[in-house]
Each structure stands twice: as C-alpha cells, then as structure tokens.
C-alpha cells in the first residue's frame, strides 16, 4: 500500500478532483439529493449552520478513513450495521464534545446532531467509495462531499439570518447601515421552515442555469 502512495502524489489531479467535484457538479444536496433531512431545519441562523457543516466534515472525514482501513476486515453481511455503528459513535462523540465546549450551539442543534447518523450522504459515500478505496482518497472524498454539503448549508443560513433577522452571526447589519430607518422590515417568512426550501430551490435554479448539463428532464 505504501508503494502506490509514493507513486501517486498526495494531491494528484485525481485526488484534487475528489475534492472539487462534489462542490458544484456532483453536489450532494443539489445533484445527488442526499442528506437534506438533517440540514434544513437548523439553517435559521448562520452559527448553527456553520457548526453543523463542520461537524459533518469531521464525522465524514473520520468515518470514511475508519471504514476504508477496515474495508478488508468487515464481514460483508453485517457491513451496514458496522457502518451505522461507526457513524453513530462518532456522532455521539461530537454531541458530547459540543455539549461540553459549545453549550449554546449544542442547545440550538438539539436533536439534529443525532440525525447526522441518518444523513444519507455519509452512508452513501461509505458504501459507494470508502468501502472499496484506500484511506487517503476516501478521506478526500469524505471531506469533499461534506464540504459540498456544508457550503449549501452556510449559504442558506446566511440568507435566512440576513433577511429574517437582519443579522450576520448575531451582528445587526441592517440596523447599522440604517435600513430600518428608511422603512425596511425583516422578512418574517425567512425564519419559518418553508423558507429553507425556497432558498435551496433558488440555489438549484442558479446552479443549473450555469451548468445546463445538470438540467433534469422532468
């Protein structure tokens, strides 16, 4: 295994592609339609979105490496349960760490941290990539997909917080630039659940008009 690694530089074109591909062209949310479940409900504010995105990046990177290392040892018949156990343990660790060090954020995320377990992106990538590839490419694949998922989350969180509460990271932007004094009002719809769907819908719209090859047939 070490020999092949020497032949291939750490960031070969192939490996870079593993990272960049899921950003737009093969984005887990807008193209592969995975992992939407746990994502949308926590995007009311930017901060929880960021924490959620980071948690998923960490969990996905680590779980991909673990499964990839164990790929020849895991009995195929119980592989789904093994994967779920690995993910679930990592999620529990993340949850415990958040509760100890980032208490306020962990309160906002509440049950949604637990739902990372059923985040289909993680299961999907473990099954499709990590269980048949070496640790390093698996790690990149995990990070790439999680980042592709994360940026959507952060963009949605940014717009919902900006238009819904007029703030960015809790800093009252709209108030400071004097938008309220000329009669602007916060858009109450943005903080309600359906707004997340609209924002993602718009992201898909923008993305697909720029990449016409992604357009579906109906």
């Amino acid at each position: 295994m070490a020999e092949t690694k020497e032949k291939e530089p750490l960031f070969s074109t192939k490996n870079k592609k593993l990272l960049s591909e899921p950003m737009v062209r093969n984005n887990p949310i807008t193209v592969q339609v995975l992992g939407i479940c746990s994502a949308l409900a926590i995007t009311v504010k930017l901060e929880p979105s960021l924490v959620m995105a980071l948690s998923v990046v960490v969990i996905m990177g680590v779980s991909n490496v673990i499964i990839s290392l164990l790929r020849n040892m895991i009995p195929p018949r119980i592989r789904i349960i093994v994967m779920l156990t690995v993910i679930a343990s990592l999620v529990v660790l993340t949850d415990e760490v958040l509760e100890a060090f980032l208490y306020d954020v962990s309160k906002q995320l509440s049950v949604f941290v637990g739902l990372i377990i059923t985040n289909c992106i993680i299961m999907g990538r473990l099954e499709a990539f990590a269980s048949s590839n070496k640790p390093w490419p698996s790690f990149l694949d995990g990070i790439g997909n999680a980042a592709g998922y994360g940026w959507i989350l952060i963009v949605v969180g940014f717009f919902r917080e900006l238009f819904g509460s007029g703030e960015v990271f809790g800093y009252p932007v709209f108030e400071k630039i004097g938008l309220y004094s000329i009669g602007y009002e916060n858009n109450g719809l943005m903080i309600l659940p359906p707004a997340a769907l609209f924002v993602v819908g718009i992201i898909i719209w923008v993305q697909r008009s720029r990449h016409p090859e992604l357009v579906e047939e109906n």
């Binding site: 309600l192 659940p193 898909i204 047939e217 109906n218």
Partner: peptide, 29 residues
C-alpha cells in the same frame, strides 16, 4: 400533474419540488 406544465428548465425536477414543498409547508402552517 406538473409534468404537463411549462417549468423553467433549470428548475425542472428537483428545484420545483423544493419550492412546491415550501408552499405546502406554508399551507400546513
């Protein structure tokens, strides 16, 4: 039903489903 409507090409499929779900969400509120 929406298969018979003229949805903007980039929104077809996934995009419009998201937006409809949002509208249904508002109705459920």
């Amino acid at each position: 039903k929406i298969r018979y409507s003229n949805v903007p090409a980039p929104l077809r499929g996934l995009g419009i489903t998201f937006i409809i779900t949002g509208l249904m969400g508002i109705a459920f509120m």
